[in-house]
Design a protein around this nucleic acid. Structure first.
Lengths: 249, 249
DNA sequence: TGGCATCGTGCCATATGGTGGAACACCCAC
DNA sequence: GTGGGTGTTCCACCATATGGCACGATGCCA
């Protein structure tokens, strides 16, 4: 496996600092490098914000950027880990891909997806960020968002992806009212032609909605005629179970 | 300020991954580097465990080591920040250095210390890890530890640091019983000749003890004759205030 | 099924980025 | 005042990192 010596050394320095603040000479000793090399590595890491000098001291300690890099890893990983078995079950029951997303501003960030054995499937959106108004999970987020935030979104023209994308504010507001009543929402050919999806909200212990579960599939077979309500209830139940697991954790 | 190009590039790559898993080509695009360079940086970061390939996929994501590097930063920082004003006051009242430590296996990890204006003082132990049986904070941790864990410690010979270090299991167990009754403990010349200290436990919201406050000083002046009880109560009160602050947070 | 596009990986000649020894300024204890 | 230790900076040198290129694998589409 390829290696970059400076990267190896940099992380050795970071590990040396994991125990608490130490000076340049101590870092050099622990990572077995000349002081000038250790000093240069520390200075470069400080530029990146992953280490910092203790205020009023010459010693170095780990910096805020380590924490902010990790910040996106822990909660998402925890949510993915706890939701994954529920998504597996949901995908099996419904027979289409089940996914998980979190709210990120006015964007839906997909963080996990469980496929089915179908040969024809919708591509994996994990890692993708899609516009909030155009996907079912996004409309779930909007339905649980402060009205002032919805107003801010609707103050700008919305992008149309298909002829069925809701871009008129009145139409979208009416949709959101329905989501608030029903608890779930179907999106039919709204983000991409030939893709249908249904989403439901995941609430945290405080009742806030910043995650959602969805099932999606190719429009020609999903949903099966007359199965909309049943599928919606499966997604609602899955979302409720994930919400319940969040509260227990 | 000095810079190491490879370190800058490495952290640019890590930031690109902060949004979620992406492939080599996407990383290269985002950080504006040739694919072979991006691939080598990713491979090197993978060796360090700070990135990893998504299982069953060629895409990369942030890895566990980022999380473990950050892990020591957040709780310790919070505890230090919240305890610091109490330590300042305690040091002022008692007239000797006051310190804070956390339990780390069978080792006491010192994470903060407030000095006094004395010309003669005990050196700052912040960042140090000292053996649990030989220091007062360590004996506080042992007194609140599961008996099975204490048994595991005592199954191995304990290291003697001074003639007064408690190394006989029966003697240490007796000491721990006293700590359980009194709530605090004095350590007189047990870890280092000429150093005395008194410690008390900090309990979290669940009542678990994994942090402690102590005051220490040179044995020739600390504690003043007849002041042992008063000083111990000051330390107990300080520990209780920190415990209270933990519960509020 | 074959052609094409894209991806990830590995190689290697070479340019340059990173090295580390040395010197220096500063601080502190004796 | 001196010695010891720290952190910082400089710079000649060379070993490392670079990035272009080629290749195999994969997926898409006509």
């Amino acid at each position: 496996m390829s290696r970059v010596q400076s990267i190896e050394r940099a992380f050795a320095v970071l590990s040396a600092l994991a125990d608490g603040p130490i000076g340049v000479t101590e870092v050099a000793d622990r990572v077995e490098l000349p002081k000038s090399t250790a000093a240069r590595l520390l200075a470069s890491l400080a530029r990146e914000g992953v280490v910092e000098q203790v205020p009023g001291d010459t010693r170095y300690r780990l910096g805020a950027r380590i924490v902010s890099l990790a910040a996106g890893v822990v909660p998402t990983r925890r949510l993915v880990a706890l939701a994954r078995p529920v998504l597996v079950e949901l995908a099996s029951e419904v027979g289409e891909a089940a996914g998980l997303s979190v709210l990120d501003g006015f964007v839906v960030h997909y963080i996990d997806q469980v496929e089915t054995a179908h040969q024809v499937l919708v591509r994996d959106w994990t890692g993708s960020r899609l516009p909030i108004h155009a996907v079912s999970s996004g409309q779930v987020f909007l339905a649980h968002m402060a009205p002032s935030a919805v107003d801010r979104l609707l103050a700008e023209p919305l992008e149309r992806f298909t002829p069925r994308t809701l871009v008129e504010p009145a139409a979208l507001r009416e949709r959101l009212r329905r989501v608030q009543l029903d608890g779930y929402v179907w999106g039919l050919d709204e983000f991409a032609e030939g893709i249908n999806s249904v989403a439901a909200p995941i609430a945290d212990a405080a009742g806030n909605v910043s995650a959602a579960v969805h099932v999606h599939g190719p429009a020609y077979r999903f949903p099966q005629a007359g199965a909309e309500m049943e599928i919606a209830h499966e997604v609602l139940a899955a979302a409720a179970r994930i919400s319940g697991r969040l509260r227990q954790g």
